[in-house]
Design a protein around this nucleic acid. Structure first.
Lengths: 181, 181
DNA sequence: TTTAACATGTAATACGTTACATGATTAC
DNA sequence: GTAATCATGTAACGTATTACATGTTAAA
């Protein structure tokens, strides 16, 4: 396996969460990891293929009557080991999010204040939507998976999303005030 | 200019801030935009070249005695117009930051609690460094550029960084407590 | 009847980093 | 003498998205 493509580890890790097809991995990512990781099918299927080639996963084709054929992937013991090795590698750098709103704000002296207020309003609205989405997922996990070993960790990642999103919402308000006063 | 590459607009925008060489644009990004946008030389120089080709910037070569030749770029009126058009285009999607720490945390049932606490500690430490960096930049802008038209907006982007980083630091503490109790 | 959900995959393209290449001056 | 700063640029590579291609079933 190539050195440091975290997306590969994400896919490998998801094989330990009950997701065992490309399709269900994609769903899981969209539903539960989307606030800190996104992956498209264009990465998932080729990656699954190469994980099998390298011995970190195995695959079994299941025929289904009413549905297209399924490829069910299982993580191997070599795969578990690799996942654990990756987990223990220290994180060297904080992520830089590419924030289009902040980029536009940075250059906002070139546009009217009204437009800038609209920019902030739009951002706030989207943040509020995001906040509610996270809250929904958290409640879902708490009610349906609270006994699972993974649940504690999953909820922690959601709390991160909730807290930082909330801080960003507050910031929008104070930025708007700063512009209008 | 190709449709929606925001990095191109970032470079175009920086030409309005007194940065007029590839080198100084890179410095500006590393110093003042790095919390929401990063660009490498591999993007900057080709982009400047194509901005000139498309008429959004002009260039003038300056010979310097004691230094390598300089290419000084100026934004054209077509460039200003393009920048303004871009500013007015609504932001459609919130960014998803790829957060390696959260990804590892998500799969942390595969590692011991001690390791997970180390993961969180390491993250917190890096966040604190970042917080102090932002604070330093903010103070610098307030003392040296507070009269410029750009300053208000630049400080708002820094406040965003300070607020959300602070929320993330708080989260680290609460996550650690959750794991130890 | 048509849309959503299930299911897999590739090719073209876009975006971005890193390593390489060059070279002078100044400060330690 | 050697590291840092100034200064520009390309080629190779890595990463990721999008569009395309295919096909079934269940529900509205």
């Amino acid at each position: 396996m190539k050195k440091d493509n975290h997306t590969r580890y994400a896919i490998l890790g998801l094989l330990t969460t009950g997701c065992n097809t490309g399709y269900s991995i994609k769903q899981m990512i969209d539903n539960s990891l989307s606030h800190f990781w996104k992956i498209s099918y264009g990465q998932i299927y080729p990656t699954l293929k190469s994980l099998v080639e390298e011995g970190y996963a195995s695959v079994r084709i299941t025929e289904q009557e009413a549905r297209p054929d399924k490829k069910e992937y299982q993580i191997t013991s070599a795969g578990i080991q690799l996942l654990q090795d990756w987990l223990q590698m220290p994180v060297l750098e904080l992520p830089t999010e590419k924030n289009e709103t902040l980029l536009k704000l940075f250059f906002s002296r070139h546009q009217g204040k009204v437009r800038t207020l609209e920019l902030l309003d739009n951002h706030k609205e989207k943040l509020e939507q995001r906040y509610n989405t996270y809250k929904g997922i958290k409640e879902m996990i708490e009610s349906r998976l609270s006994d699972g070993e993974d649940a504690v960790y999953w909820i922690m990642t959601l709390d991160y999303g909730l807290l930082t999103t909330n801080a960003a919402i507050d910031w929008c308000e104070s930025a708007k005030e700063k512009l209008t006063k």
